[in-house]
Design a protein around this nucleic acid. Structure first.
Lengths: 192, 192
DNA sequence: GAGTATACTTACCTGAAAGTAAGTTAGTGA
DNA sequence: TCACTAACTTACTTTCAGGTAAGTATACTC
């Protein structure tokens, strides 16, 4: 009994890493079971189908994100440190072997995904862009950021840049992330 | 004999579409052979291994790009229309069922790719970023663009944004592309 | 008209993927 | 202590992936 929860958690942890390294179709049950020293059927016991597993991973993604972003996603305070928190989170994920984000991992097969996963993913995107929109609005009011156009669109643009930067980091390594975060700062008129 | 060239071209054309829809591991020989009414072995005849096919697709990507970009990639002239050419090309590709670019299709498995493919891909990225860097330099000299920092880094940042935008377009549809191109224009101080 | 190369096809192979059904074992509760 | 359940394993199935070997039809060459 006491082992069970640990096994389920180990499966999720391993699958989560694999998903954020290789994407939805880039890993198999074997890639999970072998390193954990269990059988494929043990995974099926906890997650009857692969989609059930993916659903659990999206849930896990929420958990990880909210755990890691609670500090900087808090309302109020200065905007620049909140943006820096997003950059730091992205770099940290890269460093611990999770170079792509869940949205990137899902995007290629998005059309074929079940509605449940789509909804969870859409909610995640909405939460993130809502948060960044508020940060940009706050930063503009506080005269910490300067940018043209609507905060919501600028937020999507920054998220797209980070998405793209993570893809480029597969090719060029981590420095491209730091370089492009620097450009985002410059574009926002952050001088320090 | 006369049919042969057509078959090889049909394989490349079909595989190219599939690659830019589903990525490197998102399609099989069957996905190519069935719609063309040929056998898998016919593909193996023209491309002994899948990697041979991928190499040919990268070559095809060069051809398509240079064919489509000859006008706007020409040296000289005003910078804004050249940038618009890149936006128009990206939108066109999306419309004809090629939502992701070759770099995006390869990036997820980049580490495992043979050196030949890596080199070809790196050269492609270099050509593209060199070109965009020149466009930005020209635009700044002509006082058509305003932006902070080095043109090379700003160019990478724009390419990253487009990459990310294409991913987001899988979820939100084509409008997000146009919206984010609009933001890139605003960020470059293009008012018209 | 015979030989040869090209462009395939048919018929196979091996491996791996997801998934299932039927056992097995250890703890739980009555 | 006996039935029950959770958490597995063993052993299997089906499907599909990439790949190969041997045969065949057509056209091209001498």
């Amino acid at each position: 009994m006491i082992e069970t929860i640990a096994t389920r958690d180990q499966i999720i942890s391993k699958a989560f890493d694999l998903m954020l390294q290789r994407g939805l179709n880039g890993f198999s049950y074997r890639d999970i079971s072998e390193p954990l020293g269990i059988r494929n059927a043990a995974i099926h016991y906890h997650f009857p189908s692969k989609m059930d597993l993916i659903c659990a991973l999206i849930e896990e993604n929420h958990q990880v994100l909210y755990k890691n972003t609670a500090e900087y996603m808090a309302y109020g305070g200065r905007a620049p440190p909140q943006l820096e928190g997003l950059f730091a989170f992205t770099l940290k994920q890269y460093k611990i072997g999770r170079p792509i984000c869940m949205v990137g991992a899902l995007s290629i097969d998005y059309a074929e995904l079940p509605d449940e996963i789509k909804r969870a993913n859409d909610q995640f995107m909405k939460d993130t862009s809502d948060w960044l929109t508020r940060v940009l609005e706050t930063g503009r009011e506080q005269k910490e950021f300067t940018f043209q156009g609507e905060p919501r669109i600028k937020a999507m643009s920054i998220l797209a840049t980070i998405q793209g930067a993570r893809q480029l980091a597969r090719i060029y390594g981590m420095t491209i992330l730091e370089t492009l975060f620097g450009q985002i700062r410059l574009d926002l008129g952050i001088t320090s």
